[in-house]
């Protein structure tokens, strides 16, 4: 689906820990996909932000830019056990549904209920609006995820 070329990837120095990478998401349209240092990333475009034994899981800015208008987020329930590399919900744009693949295993301790009424928050700021908060059952899994830099390379491929 994507036509990406590595030579167009440029890294801009910016304040704070947010780096902007210029990635051609459409045929020739340069869209700035935001990537945050310090978070962990999966190949299916979820991010993980850890706080001790708890992880916030959401979709990346790149993912939302590819989906277009997000109109529905299917959330798990609090207390659900979710498993790494398995589906825990879905994000639907106008045109298509995409499964949410969990980057970690554990118990869902909180869901971001705001996304139920305003799924478009993911388009406004995907990193600000995490999807689920998970109590990790196997923190070792985090080692299998990508750093910000590795993820930037990954989406530029």
């Amino acid at each position: 689906m994507l036509l990406l070329s590595a030579d167009i990837l440029t890294k801009n120095k910016s304040k704070s820990n947010i780096r902007s990478y210029s990635i051609p998401t459409y045929q020739n349209k340069m869209t700035m996909a935001k990537i945050i240092e310090g978070l962990l990333y999966s190949e299916s475009h979820e991010y993980v932000k850890t706080e001790g034994n708890v992880a916030y899981v959401g979709i990346t800015d790149f993912a939302q830019s590819q989906l277009g208008n997000v109109v529905y987020v299917e959330l798990p329930e609090e207390g659900d056990e979710i498993t790494a590399e398995e589906t825990f919900g879905a994000v639907e744009s106008v045109k298509a549904a995409s499964d949410l693949i969990s980057p970690v295993s554990g118990k869902v301790v909180e869901i971001n209920e705001a996304l139920g009424d305003e799924p478009e928050l993911l388009n406004k700021d995907a990193f600000e609006h995490w999807i689920v908060k998970v109590e990790l059952s196997n923190p070792e899994e985090l080692k299998g995820l990508m750093s910000a830099e590795a993820y930037a390379r990954f989406i530029a491929q």
Binding site: Y26, Q27, N28, K29, G68, N69, V94, K95
Partner: peptide, 24 residues
Amino acid sequence: HVELGALISPFGGFEMPIQYTDII
């Protein structure tokens, strides 16, 4: 379409613009 930055996809045997900004 390319100049306008359209997202282009195959449709009916043609490379057609699906959206320029967003569908909504």
